[in-house]
Design a protein around this nucleic acid. Structure first.
Lengths: 198, 198
DNA sequence: AATTTACTCAAGCAGTCGCTTCAGTACATT
DNA sequence: AATGTACTGAAGCGACTGCTTGAGTAAATT
């Protein structure tokens, strides 16, 4: 039940029935018996991963309030990923599966839209307090960009490099980048460009 | 020769020989005749996409110099992607293929490391001029984060939303985020113990 | 002891995969 | 007209896919 996320993350469509059964030492019939089909097994694994990630994300954002700094928001936003990168193993496989779903969403993934929306709303709430001058639409966009960046880190080779670091080291490098993406760096509307952080 | 990138982007490992031939109205034998194998065809398509993207990226960065602002750097860095998103079609398929390669690199992709390194070096050169206070190692990290974010935009569903906008509209939303990721947003000085998770 | 329940196992099904084969065709060259 | 070159078409090969089947097994329940 657990070791198959390791396969779901190596490619949603690239995982075969016998890959899984060989890895866990089971028989192909066991999958049909327990899940009905390979597709149902994958959906079950994806649902498990999504729930686990969203619960963690919502909890992290729940620790924040309107007095939280932008760095704290970025840290909370990125913490599920940084923790998974540092932990590796099944925790990282869960994050990779979630990231894959963001690229190749399965058919019936709308079941979890509720939790997903709540996670996004929580992030938006703490961001608007820090960046009152930015449109809500743009904050949503930045949130999605930041989430995409984190998902990319989980999937791309750079993620395996980060996996060798501690969670503090990852956060030290990553959080300023996430916070910077949230904050933005305005385009020179007219005249001289100035450092907006002063 | 062109319409097959559309398939390579729908999943490197999920593309089948008959998918391609049915789409272009050709026969399976034509692939073996022209490329030798499906793998060779995919490698050829990937190589084509990578070269096309890297040439464009290097050219964009080449327009910059040490007097360019951070927004200009971000704009040049993101322009191949914003342009592809606005253009759609084959140009977007090329970017999606490149992004897929970043996640699931094919076996012999080291051939193009030279151009890839040059692109990264060019980006680093114009970034150090804008951010002299940041370590080079961290600038490399931020460059990879920003590139990952752009790749994500190409692959994820948000990319199809962006594809409905003009290149100026995309840039208006995207460039501040990329520039913000480059610039970073510093963490609060250590010792304040603001983080509730420690 | 008998029965039910939960599950595993090897075998095999139809379908698809990448790839090859070889006869057939269009066209340029001689 | 004959020949060579470049390419296409349909058919089929072995390997693999997801999935099913039916016999077999171990433990719990009766």
């Amino acid at each position: 039940m657990a070791a198959l996320e390791l396969l779901a993350q190596r490619g949603q469509e690239g995982v075969t029935l016998r890959d899984i059964t060989d890895r866990v030492g089971a028989n192909v019939a066991a999958v049909s018996y327990h899940f009905g089909s390979l597709k149902a097994l994958c959906e079950s694994a994806i649902e498990y991963a999504l729930e686990r990630y969203l619960d963690e994300q919502i909890q992290e954002l729940g620790f924040l309030d309107t007095t939280s700094t932008l760095q704290e928001v970025a840290a909370a936003f990125a913490r599920p990923m940084t923790r998974a990168l540092a932990a590796g193993g099944e925790e990282l496989a869960v994050m990779r599966t979630v990231a894959r779903v963001g690229i190749d969403p399965p058919e019936g993934w709308q079941r979890l839209t509720g939790k997903f929306d709540r996670s996004r709303r929580d992030a938006l709430r703490v961001l608007t307090a820090n960046l009152p001058g930015v449109d809500e639409e743009e904050l949503i966009f930045r949130t999605r960009c930041a989430a995409g960046m984190l998902n990319w880190l989980a999937l791309a080779p750079i993620g395996t490099e980060l996996a060798a670091m501690s969670v503090e080291e990852i956060g030290r490098q990553l959080i300023p980048v996430v916070a910077g993406a949230f904050h933005g760096y305005p385009q020179p509307a007219s005249g001289q460009a100035q450092d907006p952080h002063q």
